[in-house]
Design a protein around this nucleic acid. Structure first.
Lengths: 193, 193
DNA sequence: CTCCTGTGATTGAATGACCAACCAAGTTTG
DNA sequence: CAAACTTGGTTGGTCATTCAATCACAGGAG
């Protein structure tokens, strides 16, 4: 028999919380349900996570880690990230569904809101870095990279939402169009008056 | 004393529900709170709206009406819509906040989900019509209009989300960039004005 | 080798609060 | 008067959190 790590139950609870939250939805999920899914007693959930809020915060952190798409740099990295996103849309619908829900919760829960906000800022920052690298490769003005990142990340969120809510939504087509628009906008031709 | 319209209380409840839901959040809002805000008895809420779900559905319909941005057609209509959206971001933060929350709720509530889904499809359809008009004005292939609409509406949702969650988000810059990308993408790739 | 004991892990029941929905009785209005 | 409207209390249930009690086990004492 392998050694019984003290964090074994903690991990089971975390996975169960993710499963129940994404399956049943935030407002339909009780600590009791999570404990049942994890196969432990209700009290143990509060032993490892002081409150429901802290547990959901830990789950949010877990979800964010499942959504990483950055595997390379420069133009190739940008193209790869869009491809990775298309794969994630197929393989991680639960994580996306839960993320969308926690966005809503975060609007009125200080801690969860801070978690979501930090995640969005970080992701937008990654996109901005990629945009700057692409612009540098083309030896053009790097100043629009922030605006581009705002739009690209908005598109990512919006595609996630439409895909989650509408099963008929053509996500691949949308991602391809977003990629084309983003990479053509990086050219200096898109200047505004 | 003015004449007491029978629909007066119903309207008061609807407005109160919008106010409390957007201020406190969905899972922190009870029928009791809404009745108190409206200045009526608890039972009256169930008299006019059979259930909490039906009430929220009516509020969702109300919210969607506050988010209309289409005032003209063709390229001018598209530009006007983006400008109207920028105004809405400043004037209707409550409606946007509530809409985002109901997106999350709709993922696990059949009726609210159907309401959100129909709204998204309709909005995307409006954008697609505008895109087709713009492409027609330019006498180019209208086939990419669906993909463009998917990306533009994704951008709209994503900008709403980022603006609601992050007070420091520069929404005007993002909308301008989205407009520029959308209107330049309408050109067939390779041609530049 | 056995017993003892302290500590963290785990249990399940109790607490106190809250809520959606229902209802029976009152009020207004046409 | 009858129908629509309004009231506020009741009901049956759920929930997060707390807590006292039990368990597993490691390691020191005898």
């Amino acid at each position: 028999m392998g050694p019984k790590l003290p964090s074994d139950s903690r991990e089971k609870i975390l996975q169960a919380a993710f499963a129940v939250l994404s399956r049943e939805g935030y407002e339909n999920t009780s600590i009791h349900d999570i404990a049942e899914e994890a196969g432990v007693a209700q009290g143990l959930v509060h032993y490892y996570f002081k409150s429901k809020q802290k547990l959901v915060l830990a789950v949010l952190f877990e979800v964010c880690q499942k959504m990483n798409v950055y595997t390379a740099e420069g133009t190739a990295g940008a193209l790869a990230a869009f491809e990775n996103f298309k794969v994630l849309l197929r393989t991680q619908p639960d994580a996306h569904s839960l993320y969308i829900q926690l966005m809503g919760v975060g609007l009125h829960d200080k801690e969860i809101g801070a978690g979501i906000r930090d995640n969005i800022r970080m992701e937008r920052g990654h996109v901005e870095d990629l945009a700057r690298q692409v612009l540098a490769e083309r030896e053009t003005d790097p100043s629009p990279s922030r605006a581009i990142a705002s739009v690209v990340w908005a598109g990512v969120i919006g595609i996630m939402v439409q895909k989650s809510i509408d099963p008929e939504f053509n996500a691949d087509e949308a991602v391809d169009a977003l990629a084309a628009m983003a990479l053509s906008a990086v050219y200096p031709s898109g200047q505004r008056a």
